[in-house]
Design a protein around this nucleic acid. Structure first.
Lengths: 212, 212
DNA sequence: GTATGTGAAGTTATTCACAGCG
DNA sequence: CGCTGTGAATAACTTCACATAC
């Protein structure tokens, strides 16, 4: 499922280059997977390829966005305006992909009332009223680990249905809410593992498929 | 494999709470996986459990860190000191987990010579000399998407063996170097997908196992 | 000829079920 | 008993192989 996003990235790239048709092989290659995989991924949602020719880049893009639900723009809330939160609310690639921040929350009195990326920072106590009024259903969580779980619960009560959590906290997702975790440390740990077992460079003759 | 990191997070949590023994069930639960999974994961690297009692929290932590290779501290380079790069170099959780930034690079003349988190910013042209001198083997890449691939290649030539790439660029990993991608947009797209198909709240009775 | 779509085969990952040990 | 460790069974995922369409 995550692969659909990867195809999207590739399609964005092709659109910029003005390419109009793409084959399953081209879509598959950078993901290190066979072309049948791509065909099957796309095949699950209907058949939008042209035999002999490939897939139309633009139509495939809009099909995939249709599947992911990012053709209409999502309103997103940010909770936790620290260094990471600030970087995320300013992250320039969200907007073209269908995500727009509409509210920001933090508990630091010094930050409340100030703006970041044009958005006013409110105290977390106001989350419920503001988010329900705006009808926000997605949130990005960039708070310290101890705060993550209680805030996630509040968000859930405020009607938020999907939370992207950047803390390394481990928590049970509140009922009815999906949580996706991005644990940055764990990615470095993964690299440490992969690199650590490769003593010198070049040595590894292993086919290096997945291996996660 | 990624699950080892998740166990580590849980163990850090337990250590803070002063817990000394933990069962495979406890370790497994927040990952939404059966306890046998945890036992098998750990079993792959030896048997460090005590039957009838569980696993010793501290020893298990050091065993897992041993497996991941994070018992000795890794020196890490940052390339791209934008909002995201700055947030990453300041990220407080790297250090206790065995990662320490020792160098930063950017091409913006205004940034070169200044410091972030106590580390001087150098031009990317100096990457090779500085990184080989320091013997840095891991790098975090937070540059605009177009710059990602060339920089990754330079890093590889500078002896870096593992790259954590935060751009959404798709690229073939340079020979002998492992690249791990964190595509932030794709995580929101995933949530969009998960949330979009859940019309109201509460509706979904599905067992909600993996589903990625 | 070229590239999709898809059953069938093969591979990998997860769970079951239980023996073994403190 | 409680909980680990692990063969055997099951499920999930990926690749093979080829019929099908342009």
């Amino acid at each position: 499922m995550r692969r659909l996003s990867a195809y999207l990235r590739k399609l964005e790239d092709l659109i910029e280059k003005g390419v109009e048709q793409v084959s399953s092989r081209d879509l598959a290659e950078h993901i290190k997977v066979g072309p049948e995989m791509t065909r099957r991924d796309l095949g699950m949602f209907g058949q939008f390829g042209n035999r002999g020719r490939g897939y139309g880049v633009e139509t495939l893009q809009s099909r995939i966005r249709g599947i992911l639900g990012t053709q209409k723009e999502w309103d997103v809330a940010l909770v936790g305006v620290g260094d990471l939160g600030r970087a995320l609310i300013r992250y320039p690639e969200f907007s073209p992909r269908g995500f727009r921040f509409v509210a920001a929350f933090d508990n630091d009195p010094k930050k409340i009332g100030t703006r970041v990326a044009g958005i006013e920072i409110h105290p977390t106590s106001k989350m419920k009223s503001i988010l329900t009024r705006l009808g926000v259903r997605l949130a990005v969580l960039a708070v310290p680990p101890q705060a993550a779980e209680p805030v996630a619960r509040q968000l859930s009560k405020a009607g938020v249905m999907g939370i992207l959590d950047f803390s390394s906290a481990v928590m049970a997702p509140p009922d009815g809410t999906v949580i996706d975790h991005v644990d940055i440390s764990s990615h470095l740990e993964y690299l440490s593992f992969r690199v650590g077992s490769t003593r010198s460079r070049k040595q590894s003759k292993t086919r290096s498929r997945k291996q996660h």
